[in-house]
Design a protein around this nucleic acid. Structure first.
Lengths: 215, 215
DNA sequence: AGGCTATTTATACACTTGCACAACAACGCC
DNA sequence: GGCGTTGTTGTGCAAGTGTATAAATAGCCT
């Protein structure tokens, strides 16, 4: 009667990934407090003991899960800047749009981000991870801004450029939060439109078509 | 030898407030997971059992703590708009500044906000509380924006006004986050300056002194 | 097919958690 | 001053936590 549970041996990489995904799901659903080893294991379809086989402790699992999350977020965000054959201004607009539409606007990802970042004040490791991700993101923004202004024959100094990047970063972040927390209050594409207009206003860019502007 | 601990009977309101403050401190420092009844009680200078005397359960305590936090945040934020004898534009600038300088820019408050808001996706009560706070805030912004534009003889329609409010809200939120998470990267007043410039750009306001502007 | 090994399960354990309850003592009232 | 009320403490408990470790078995190699 000792019916021991059947199981399959998955590859190491696969199991680690499954466990990390199960961890992120658990955290998103029940918060850090509710993400217990047993909950995570249940979600991953294994028993709790197995986790210790792949991770030294719970803390390590959480850390790797957060790193994975950040990696996915920044990867998706930067991908929008990759368009080769487009004007700087178009690329900037595409970047803003990419950050303010699905799948970046996502309540689950936001919950994860907020839950983890809430501990940045107490956890220096987390704080540094965020700092690096943030600076990387801002540098990308700054680079595109430089290109956009160069195309307009404007020569901003370093401080000006930095301020623009900070402001644009804030616009994107702020709208991202609004969209994640109250997505149904905005029609599709509305946030992106607001974002593009705000960013172009920040950079002092006039409307694209100079003639025929009624209003 | 049964040296029972000495104690004082505090007023009910005082005790509740102390417990709530101790709860917020605990959450800010150790996250929701680390905020146990015993930790909270220790911080409040009482024993754990007492909490049950004032709150039906831990969940209720956390809920009240969150409500208190939100109340303080919005109260401080709105207070900046109260200036009576000032031009709309000055009041808007003061509002932005108030939200981007101490004591609103504060890592502890941010940690609390993030920790709680991270559960908004799973907790409808929290989600609604946030929604109301957010809309209240945005309506305030919208009202000032309307005044500012009116003073400039501009007559925006409702949609335009709404978009401005959303964008300005995003700018403030985004800069607030940047400041809380990496405050030492910005010189004092820098975020506020960036914010004001960004907001005025969003509204299409020219520089205040039209003549003599030597860059 | 049969054995080896490392993945996986299952159980145990010390500890913490939220909650319940009885004993106690601080303070207001007479 | 004594007394009753009730705010407060201390202890207990069942459930759940992370971790440790022994037992089992799936899948590969020959």
């Amino acid at each position: 009667m000792s019916a021991r549970r059947k199981f399959r041996r998955e590859g190491e990489e696969r199991r680690r990934q499954d466990l990390i995904d199960a961890t992120l799901d658990s955290v998103a659903e029940h918060g850090l407090e509710g993400a217990t080893l047993r909950t995570i294991a249940l979600r991953a379809g294994v028993t709790a003991g197995l986790i210790r086989h792949y991770f030294p402790g719970k803390e390590d699992l959480l850390q790797e899960a957060y790193a994975t999350l950040m990696g996915r977020m920044t990867e998706q965000a930067k991908a929008a800047l990759a368009m080769e054959d487009a004007s700087p201004r178009q690329r900037l607009a595409a970047f803003v749009t990419a950050n303010l539409d699905a799948p970046i606007i996502d309540q689950r990802v936001f919950s994860l981000w907020a839950t983890f970042i809430g501990r940045a004040g107490a956890d220096p490791t987390l704080a540094r991870a965020h700092r690096e991700g943030y600076l990387g993101f801002r540098n990308e923004v700054e680079a595109v801004v430089a290109e956009v202004l160069a195309a307009e024959r404007r020569k901003p100094d370093a401080a000006e450029l930095r301020h623009h990047a900070i402001a644009i970063n804030a616009i994107i972040d702020g709208l991202w939060i609004e969209g994640c927390l109250a997505g149904e209050m905005f029609s599709p594409g509305e946030l992106a439109a607001i974002g593009i207009k705000a960013v172009e206003a920040e950079l002092g860019l006039g409307p694209l078509e100079l003639k025929g502007g009624n209003q």
